[in-house]
Simulated scan of single mutants.
Amino acid sequence: MGEEAAAELRALVTEARKAADSSARMEGNVFHGPAAIQVGDRNRQDNHFGPGA
């Protein structure tokens, strides 16, 4: 693994740990199939299903 890839991986792990330490947590949930989670104010999510989506 190159130094750039290792540095990027460390940055991603640090970001994930910070997110895990936040006050908004989801624990003990099981998702079977596609799932989406939104956190924060004024979020927007558009879902398109089927042909031509």
Rank of each mutant, 00 (worst) to 15 (best):
E3S: 10
N43M: 11
R17A: 10
S23A: 15
R44T: 07
S22N: 08
A36T: 14
N47F: 12
L12T: 03
V30H: 08
L12P: 00
D21R: 10
D21M: 12
D41L: 06
E4H: 05
L12S: 08
T14V: 05
D21W: 03
H32Y: 07
A16R: 08
V39M: 04
N29M: 08
G50Q: 03
A35H: 14
G50K: 04
A7R: 09
A6V: 13
R10Y: 03
A16E: 13
Q45A: 13
M1Y: 14
H32L: 14
A16I: 02
K18Q: 10
N43D: 04
N43T: 15
T14W: 01
A35W: 05
G33Q: 01
K18M: 10
V13M: 02
Q45N: 08
S22H: 09
A7E: 09
N47E: 11
A7D: 07
E27L: 11
F31M: 14
N47W: 03
P34T: 12
E3R: 09
F49G: 06
G33Y: 00
A53G: 15
M26D: 06
A6L: 14
H48A: 15
N43L: 11
R44A: 13
R10H: 04
G2Y: 00
D46P: 00
V39A: 03
R25V: 07
S22L: 11
A20G: 06
A16W: 04
K18D: 03
P34D: 15
N29D: 09
A20I: 02
G28T: 00
G52F: 04
S23C: 05
G28C: 04
Q38M: 12
Q38V: 06
G28D: 02
A20Y: 01
P34S: 11
R10M: 06
L12Y: 02
A24F: 14
S23G: 12
N47Y: 10
E4M: 11
L9E: 09
A35V: 11
A11T: 13
E8L: 06
R25I: 11
V13S: 02
N29C: 14
Q38D: 04
G52T: 02
V13A: 00
E4K: 10
Q45D: 04
G50I: 01
A6D: 12
A24K: 04
E8Q: 07
G28W: 05
V13P: 00
T14R: 09
D21Y: 07
R44S: 07
P34G: 06
E27D: 13
P34M: 12
L9T: 08
A35G: 08
E8I: 06
G33N: 00
E27K: 15
E27Q: 13
A11R: 11
F49W: 10
N43F: 05
H48F: 11
